[in-house]
Design a protein around this nucleic acid. Structure first.
Lengths: 139, 139
DNA sequence: TCCTACAATGGACTAAGTCCAAGTCAAGTG
DNA sequence: CACTTGACTTGGACTTAGTCCATTGTAGGA
């Protein structure tokens, strides 16, 4: 069930109860959780887990490239376990909900080299903003 | 010299020394300042100006559409006075510096309606990430 | 010049995240 | 299996960026 866990183990991660729990939470069908939401769900499975550990673990998974960090505003960062299929995001300006989307086109190819200012460009992120049906209804 | 100031005045803004100073700071050639940088520069011109006022003023300019708010990470938001020419951003993953870029293509048209999930999509933001020449040199 | 509604102030407060010294434990070794 | 060790976890203090609010100040119309 847990591909994510398998991949992490394969990378020589020391497996602890805390890390397993965090990986399980991310691997569930709850996408785009904030660090605090991850912590809350982790606590349900392992009551003693600390906030710092959740932050550490998420940070490690991000730097291993197993999870993507999405910061669309000044609110909390969200964590996207769907790191192995390229995609972009559609976010609700009101409630902050995020959905994965797969637009056509290749924005990376659209940036001419005379617009790169000497940067080594490694990544593009496309964020669509709007109002979700839910928030549109209650306003 | 200050188009921004003129536009704001034209919208019936009550003109105060503080607002003038904030507008002047943004209108200079210092693009993509953080709120704190705006405050620091404003203080140089008007020592008594408070942080709260800078935040208020920036917030108002954003909701009037005269200035764009850019949040590329969990660091401070940055303010882009170049609101009237559509553009996207190239940001340095190390130091956070931002440059305006004008890629080809129309990402808005690339999002098919069956990928919109009932959202009213109003805006797209493309963010290229990489390392700036400066940070590449000192690493 | 006077009034008054709008704006500015600054200090307390909050949210999200980072840091660190001390304690704990997974897993390799004999 | 028991030991050992360095990687991991803990929780509380700290930081950063920003918001809130009661009070004081002032731009601009009458």
């Amino acid at each position: 069930m847990s591909d994510l866990l398998e991949r992490l183990r394969g990378r020589g991660w020391r497996m602890t109860a805390q890390r397993r729990v965090v990986a399980e939470v991310l691997d569930g069908d709850h996408v785009h959780l904030t660090a605090d939401e991850v912590h809350a769900r982790a606590v349900a499975k392992l009551p003693e887990i600390s906030r710092a550990t959740v932050y550490n673990t998420l940070g490690e998974m991000v730097s291993l490239g197993e999870v993507i960090e999405v910061s669309t505003d000044r609110r909390a960062k969200r964590y996207d376990p769907n790191a192995h299929r390229p995609h972009h995001h559609l976010v609700c300006a009101v409630c902050g909900t995020i959905r994965d989307v797969h637009p056509a086109g290749d924005p990376m190819a659209d940036l001419p080299s005379d617009e790169r200012f000497g940067f080594t460009v490694s990544d593009v992120e496309v964020t669509y903003r709007g109002i979700c049906p839910n928030c549109a209804a209650t306003s």
